[in-house]
């Protein structure tokens, strides 16, 4: 999923300070799962903002809305009938959601309330870690299901570097060395030999080096 974290409160407050009518719009997808911008977080942030305004002796009208999927025009359309009632939108979705709103409602300013971070998986309750950088040319079949692009600090395709220490990356003791994990997994699979096959220089075009990426599925077009 796409992970995100709420922005510092001060930054959020500064961004909406000129407005007194706000739509606070969450999303039921990824940001709900990573507890950054679902219905619950929308409620909590609304409460926090109201308290802030109360303390200042100002009123703010916050309408809490959580869309099924903020990156989908179909669901974003739900706001169409009401958007004129607000001065600004504060979005708690990932950057895709923010842009979908901004693209649809061109006359209403949209501000992000979260920082979108990475595509990750849950390691444990409350812990998410980066797993994929969407390079567009998946190597996981060659690397024992562990991604060196996302999980090696230097994105080495022929690692590990000399900085690995007791299976950890040199950048921090709590970061696993991806190449140690790959090696262990290849061993477990009886595929150590594969390690010595050189991975050629990567074509980064599919990873975004070729400009913004897009998928067009002709079979699905209306």
């Amino acid at each position: 999923m796409i992970t995100a974290e709420q922005k510092p409160l001060k930054e959020i407050i500064d961004s909406i300070s000129p407005y007194e009518k706000i739509f606070l719009v969450g999303c039921n997808e990824c940001v709900t799962v990573c507890a950054a911008g679902g219905r619950k977080e929308v409620g909590l942030l609304a409460s926090v903002l109201r308290l802030h305004y109360l303390k200042q002796g100002r009123t703010i009208e916050i309408k809490e809305i959580t869309l099924e999927r903020q990156c989908d025009p179909e669901y974003v359309e739900e706001l169409a009938s009401e958007i004129h009632r607000t001065e600004a939108v504060l979005s708690m979705a990932c950057g895709c959601g923010v842009q979908t709103l901004a693209g649809r409602y061109r006359e209403t300013p949209v501000f992000p309330a979260v920082n979108t971070l990475f595509m990750g998986a849950s390691e444990a309750q409350g812990i998410w870690a980066e797993r994929c950088q969407g390079c567009g040319d998946c190597l996981l079949g060659l690397t024992g299901g562990i991604c060196p692009v996302a999980r090696c600090s230097k994105h080495l395709l022929n690692g590990p570097c000399g900085g690995t220490s007791h299976g950890k990356c040199e950048i921090a003791p709590d970061v696993d060395c991806a190449w140690c994990l790959i090696w262990e997994r290849l061993k477990a699979l009886g595929l150590e030999k594969r390690y010595e096959e050189i991975m050629e220089a990567k074509d980064w075009r599919s990873a975004g080096g070729g400009g913004p990426r897009k998928i067009v599925r002709k079979d699905l077009l209306l």
Partner: peptide
């Protein structure tokens, strides 16, 4: 090369277009 984190420009983006083998 050492990771940028260790140097005097830890905010720099490491390029790593290739690795040493490549």
């Amino acid at each position: 090369g050492d990771h940028p984190k260790f140097g005097d420009h830890p905010m720099a983006k490491g390029v790593f277009d290739l690795d040493s083998v490549q």
